[in-house]
Amino acid sequence: MSVAQLVVTKRFSEYPAGRYRADGSFSGEVFREDLLVPLLAKHDEVHIDLDGAMGYGSSFLEEAFGGLVRVRRLSPDQLHRQLRFKSDEEPALIDEIWFYIDGAASR
């Protein structure tokens, strides 16, 4: 089984913000399209460490993770199998991400 480790602050930014690519280099769309989608295509599991960032806005999280379902048409079931999250600093982030993933299926 192939597992990828993604530490957001090391591979992306300490300041993730915004929804769309037009909002800046560290938006949810950039994270999803440039990092997350390729990792999901190549690996059975992707472990994402969310700790160390200066916060995550709801627009970033919804676009990055809910967008996997809305835009990329990945199923929530597939994402529940492939994604693992770590957030010791703010554990509620994990529930928020799953809320966006599961909610995107009904849109």
Results as ranks from 00 to 15, higher is better:
Ala41Met: 15
Glu33Trp: 03
Glu90Ile: 08
Glu29Tyr: 01
Glu33Pro: 00
Ile94Val: 15
Leu93Gln: 09
Ala17Lys: 11
Ala105Trp: 03
Leu68Met: 06
Phe99Ile: 06
Leu83Phe: 03
Ser106Thr: 01
Ser13Pro: 09
Tyr20Gly: 06
Ala53Phe: 00
Leu6His: 04
Met54Ser: 09
Ala17Trp: 12
Glu89Gln: 15
Gly66Ala: 02
Leu74Ser: 12
Phe12Gly: 12
Asp95His: 06
Ser27Pro: 11
Lys42His: 13
Arg81Thr: 04
Val7Phe: 13
Ala64Cys: 04
Leu39Lys: 06
Gly18Gln: 09
Asp102His: 01
Phe99His: 12
Glu90Val: 10
Lys10Gln: 09
Tyr20Gln: 10
Leu68Arg: 06
Phe65Val: 02
Ala17Gln: 11
Arg72Gln: 15
Pro91Glu: 14
Gln82Pro: 04
Asp49Val: 02
Asp49Tyr: 01
Ala41Glu: 14
Leu36Cys: 15
Glu33Met: 04
Leu93Trp: 08
Ser59Gly: 05
Glu62His: 09
Ile97Leu: 07
Arg72His: 13
Ile48Cys: 12
Ser13Asn: 07
Glu14Ile: 10
Val71Gln: 11
Leu61Ala: 10
Gly103Met: 05
Phe12Trp: 00
Arg107Thr: 01
Arg11Glu: 15
Met1Gly: 12
Ala64Pro: 06
Ala104Gln: 00
Asp44Met: 14
Ala53Ser: 13
Arg21Leu: 08
Phe85Leu: 12
Val3Arg: 15
Met1Leu: 10
